[in-house]
Amino acid sequence: PGLAWDACMKVTKVKLELFNEHQGDMHDFFTAMKRGVQKILSLKEKSSRGCCLEVKLSIPKELHPKFRDYPMCPEQKNVPYDWYSSKQKEWAGKWKDENAGIRVTGYVGVRAKCYSVITENPQKNMIKAKGLKKSLIKKELTHKIFEDCVLEGKEDQPRTAQFLRSYRHRMYKIKQTKRSINPLDTKLWIDQDGITTHLYGDCEIPEE
Rank of each mutant, 00 (worst) to 15 (best):
K139F: 01
K113I: 02
Y115A: 09
S166I: 12
R111V: 06
K94E: 04
T197Y: 03
R159N: 07
R165T: 12
L164T: 13
P122A: 04
D193K: 10
K113T: 02
E152W: 05
T177E: 11
E140M: 08
K175F: 01
Y107V: 15
K178Q: 13
G106P: 08
A92V: 11
E155M: 09
L141Y: 05
K175E: 13
I118H: 02
K187P: 00
T177G: 01
K133I: 14
Q88D: 08
L188I: 09
K130N: 06
N99G: 00
K124Q: 12
Q157K: 15
G101M: 04
K113Q: 11
F163V: 04
P183V: 07
E147H: 07
R168M: 10
K138H: 08
L151W: 03
G109C: 13
G194T: 07
K113M: 10
V150H: 00
S85Q: 08
I181D: 03
K113F: 00
T197R: 14
S85T: 15
P183H: 02
A129V: 15
V108I: 15
F163K: 04
K139G: 01
E152R: 15
Q88K: 12
E147M: 14
K130G: 05
K187H: 09
G101N: 04
N121P: 01
K124G: 02
V110R: 13
K89I: 09
G93V: 09
Y107A: 08
D97T: 04
Y115S: 09
F146Q: 04
T142D: 06
